[in-house]
Amino acid sequence: MNETPVSVSTMVEFTLDDEVVKVPDGSTILDACRREGIETPTLCWAENLTPVNVCRVCVVEVEGSRVLVPSCSRAVEEGMVVATDSERVRTSRRMVYELLASSVEMDRADPEVHAWMEHYGARPERMGDRSEIATVAQPVKVQDDLYVRDYERCILCYKCVEACGDDAQHTYAIATAGRGFGAHISTEHDVSLPDSACVYCGNCIGVCPTGALAFKTEHDMREAGTWDESSQSVTTTVCPFCGVGCNLELHTQDERIVKVTSPADHSVTHGHLCIKGRFGWQHAHA
């Protein structure tokens, strides 16, 4: 009588790097790789967002497919034969990193990004001298006391747009504008953030993989040379505002809160917060 959602999942059998494996029907190739312990790089994928498969760094080779396929969004099919470490895969992954790192400032990207670049032997410098090739270099946007948008670090992974839109916040303050290499994340008519629809939930910052979007606290500390992630600790607690019970991860350095995130795998928040949860902590140090 107590009807609860039950997903009856059948298993699908396929070949992954020469091993026959079984995964639940509906799994993506990436899901299967993670289950089987095959590490796979991702940039635009996140567990709390709909896959957009634009970065192409997770591509794998599927027998019978003319081109490589994005493992993050391609569902496993019965009998599929997948190779995750073929020469073609390695070349494309390396090139994706080289293309990105030649045009975008990657120094604040997640550490694993640098590890993968080293793994694949990416040499972005061979694309040419930075001063002579196209890059997304531009001044940092500091338009209020909460956010910093540093688009020379933007790899256009669309995560912030998704978090601002249908995947979480439904505010739609930002979208991709322009086209081609000129495509960029923008408010309408590129108005400043305080003049836009933005409600400062910070969910865009929460999903940014390269430090293009940052809390002003972090930005200021980096500018001052005091940001030190190695001395920081993270404590999970519950937001003091309203009764929803959002989990907060308080990042602290020198006994002060320096930024707030939320666990992407928590059933209440899925990693997303509102302005109060994200920024309302400052009374702890008032």
Partner: peptide, 18 residues
């Protein structure tokens, strides 16, 4: 309001652009 909480004892301490 979205960015404030009750009598503002806690939320008055951060600078909200909205």
């Amino acid at each position: 309001a979205l960015d404030s909480y009750n009598t503002g004892v806690q939320t008055e301490h951060y600078s909200s652009p909205i």
